[in-house]
Deep mutational scan, measured.
Amino acid sequence: TFVALYDYESRTETDLSFKKGERLQIVNNTEGDWWLAHSLTTGQTGYIPSNYVAP
């Protein structure tokens, strides 16, 4: 799992909003700078900017 370093507000319907400190499970990280992730807090799935999270 990864932890959010910053808050992120989604800009498209495929993005995932999250708050700093939220735990995220990475589903697919082969898309370059945008990873498909599942929030362990909200249960939602969407794309996140990879530079906003850390292991």
Rank of each mutant, 00 (worst) to 15 (best):
S39I: 04
D7W: 04
E9Q: 12
P55L: 11
G32R: 13
L24Q: 00
S50K: 14
Y8P: 00
D15I: 11
L36D: 01
A4I: 03
Q25L: 15
Y6P: 00
T12A: 12
Q44G: 09
T41A: 13
N28F: 10
D7V: 02
A54T: 13
T12S: 14
A37S: 02
T12C: 15
H38Q: 14
Y47V: 05
G32D: 12
G21Q: 02
W34D: 03
Y52P: 02
T1E: 13
Q44C: 10
L16G: 03
I26S: 04
F18N: 00
K19S: 08
F2S: 03
L36Y: 12
N28S: 14
N29F: 15
Y6L: 08
T1L: 15
E13R: 08
W34I: 09
R23M: 15
I26N: 03
T1Q: 10
Y47K: 06
R23K: 14
F2K: 02
A37I: 04
Q25M: 14
T45N: 06
R11Q: 14
R23Y: 15
K19H: 08
R11C: 14
W35N: 01
A4F: 01
Y52R: 06
A4C: 08
K19G: 05
D15M: 10
Y47I: 06
W34F: 11
L40F: 10
E13W: 08
G43S: 06
D15E: 15
D15W: 08
Y6V: 07
P55F: 10
Q25H: 12
F18D: 00
N29M: 15
W34C: 09
L5G: 02
H38L: 15
D15Q: 15
Y47T: 05
A37E: 00
A4S: 05
G21T: 02
Y52L: 14
G21R: 02
V3I: 14
G46L: 01
W35C: 04
Y8T: 01
L16R: 02
P55S: 09
F2Q: 04
I48A: 03
L40R: 05
Y8C: 04
L5R: 05
W35I: 08
E22C: 04
L40Y: 09
R23E: 13
A37T: 02
V53L: 08
D7L: 02
R11A: 12
S17R: 06
T14Y: 15
W34V: 09
G43A: 05
Y6C: 13
A4H: 01
P49Y: 06
D33N: 12
S39P: 00
T14A: 11
E22P: 00
G32F: 09
T30I: 11
L24W: 03
P49R: 07
N29E: 10
R23T: 14
N28K: 10
K20M: 08
L16F: 12
F18T: 02
A4G: 06
T45A: 07
T45Q: 09
G43Q: 06
N51C: 15
D15N: 11
T45D: 06
T12V: 11
W35A: 04
T42W: 02
I48K: 00
L16E: 00
S10T: 06
L16Y: 05
Y6E: 07
L36C: 12
K19L: 08
L16K: 02
L16C: 04
N28E: 11
E9Y: 12
G46F: 02
A37D: 00
F18M: 07
H38S: 10
T30L: 12
L40C: 12
Y6W: 13
R23L: 15
L40H: 06
G46W: 01
I48D: 00
T14E: 10
E13C: 13
T30H: 11
P49V: 02
E9K: 09
P49C: 09
Y6G: 05
Y8I: 01
W35D: 00
Y47W: 15
Y52N: 03
F18Y: 02
G21L: 03
T12W: 13
S17C: 07
L24F: 15
Y52V: 06
F18I: 10
R11K: 14
